[in-house]
Design a protein around this nucleic acid. Structure first.
Lengths: 234, 234
DNA sequence: CCGTCATCAATAGTGATATCAATCAGTCCG
DNA sequence: CGGACTGATTGATATCACTATTGATGACGG
């Protein structure tokens, strides 16, 4: 998934990033470059490059004499896709899924409305095809294929919204859908009601009915919220 | 605003970042490290650190033999606050403001509802005070003071939503409000209707009425959209 | 006697340079 | 047409001089 493992500094990041993201270090904890060099067995250059990336995500701040200090969580760039992935991989995954889903609940209905209002007509029509395939694979119980289609469906709507901020969330939405499936917050067969709602969204978007699309999408995302709240694990 | 100018690589970024963000280079355009060293008069170390940061924002990709290639805009991490600031500073500012405002329109009503539902009671009550001060400074025509209060108001609501993704958008919302004022998309005196709506949101949040808060906030943000659409400049 | 401020040295990041290894796009040749 | 070659370019390491920041030290004044 994504993270480039070819360069050394990325391999350092792949360990250090998740550790910081998992709150394994108190805010204010200070690393030193030399410590990182030794811990990871890398050169100073590589250690510094890794720190620069963490710094650009606002996870740490590097200052002479003090070292590399972990910043309080409130400073972090929580929308950074890499940080989101790190947190989804760690012990904070349920909290992250919950907050991401509230974001979805806010954004996707708006995106559906915009898609219906200004998306390309032909692409809007294709959405219905995706929804139909979701219904058939869903009824067949093929969860993997269903997940792929579900991701494609939601991505397509975000893309049709023609708002680059919304489009930028497609990867995040995909991660939420993947996480929801892999943590078994999905029924074995998608609920018929959910399938019906996806079709309703597709049709409303294709027919250029923003309000209908928005309302139907709102039903979809609020359903997921219920599933997440029901699961009590941290 | 924000960007640390103490280190050399940040100063390189402060030039290179906005240039790429402003589409001054075609996707696929290749820099070389040596070229950057010469253009900016910095060492290889510094040039590489700057490239690492751009790479983590997915603005460029660095590969042996090929050099440092600019990625297509669709790959960019459009939620990165630094990238947002670069784009707001360049020729794409109106487009960026528009898309950010659509994001606000989606997120802030949801945040207001959450704030009413789960925010700390005392802090919710304080929101009314802020709204009252907005009314008085607004009527007095003190645009600067009004802007500060406006930013505080919206930030407070995002914080009260207790969703870290929403909280992470406060800086972005602040930039939109600042941009809206500095590009004179604000009337000299805030419209009485807008003031009334802010008070309505504050009261609904304080009284713990999610639906009312959400509806009132929706009125606020859609009003701004009208102002942005009215202005045709690119 | 205690608090405040200037001074100074130790420390850790910052920046520069040199050098070699690894990679890969494009070319040349069989 | 395919495969080896090669030079350009990044990847990684080592090392050095520089600089900012801190915390201690001590002088001064209340």
């Amino acid at each position: 998934m994504g993270t480039d493992n070819r360069t050394l500094h990325n391999r350092v990041l792949a360990v250090l990033g998740p550790a910081i993201a998992a709150d394994e270090y108190e805010p204010g904890h200070a690393f030193t470059l030399q410590g990182l060099e030794e811990d990871f067995g890398v050169s100073r250059t590589v250690a510094r490059e890794a720190v620069r990336v963490l710094e650009s995500m606002r996870l740490v701040v590097s200052r002479p004499r003090t070292g590399i200090r972990v910043r309080p969580r409130s400073d972090w760039s929580v929308f950074d896709p890499q940080l989101i992935r790190w947190r989804l991989a760690g012990p904070g995954r349920m909290a992250q899924l919950r907050s991401l889903n509230e974001l979805r609940a806010a954004v996707e209905p708006a995106a559906a409305a915009l898609a219906a209002a200004r998306g390309d007509a032909e692409e809007r029509a294709q959405l219905v095809v995706v929804a139909e395939r979701m219904t058939s694979t869903g009824q067949a119980g093929d969860l993997d294929a269903f997940l792929d289609l579900d991701i494609a469906f939601h991505r397509r709507i975000l893309e049709l919204s023609a708002n680059e901020m919304f489009v930028g969330l497609s990867q995040v939405v995909a991660e939420v859908l993947i996480g929801r499936t892999s943590f078994h917050l999905m029924p074995r067969n998608p609920r018929p009601e959910a399938l019906r709602l996806h079709t309703a969204v597709a049709r409303a978007v294709a027919d250029g009915l923003p309000d209908v699309a928005e309302a139907a999408m709102r039903s979809i995302v609020s359903e997921v919220a219920v599933a997440l709240e029901a699961d009590g694990s941290a």
